[in-house]
Amino acid sequence: MSDNNTEKDERKKTISLPISRVRLIMKSSPDVSSINQDALFLTTKATELFVQHLARASFNNGSGRDTNTLSYTDLANTAEENDTFHFLTDILPQKILARDYLKSLEDMKEDEADL
């Protein structure tokens, strides 16, 4: 167990995501011309912290604590309710049932007809 913990401590200081992939994503941003080694390392590390933080926040607020699961809905709720995760609302939209969506479409049509 103690071995496991030291291994985890070690990992806190190093990174497991591939730096080259993170660089590719960063470079896909049109304004970015060059990135130094330290900035690349920090962004990669920050992404790992972000993944952990998002998973933890969603699990702790989510409905799955009883069933021991983390579901998509938990993540979508986090994006909607938590200010720091608000930038994720586009990529984590709330799920909506098809019949509700069709109903809202109908309502919109009716509104337009009224005009």
């Binding site: 960063m26 920050a46 992404t47 993944v51 983390l70 938990d74 993540l75 990529i91």
Partner: peptide, 18 residues
């Protein structure tokens, strides 16, 4: 589904941070 969503969120995070 949750794993895929977190992975996509991480890519968006990289772009936002960049």
């Amino acid at each position: 589904e949750a794993r895929r969503a977190i992975s996509q969120a991480a890519s968006v995070f990289v772009l936002y941070a960049t």
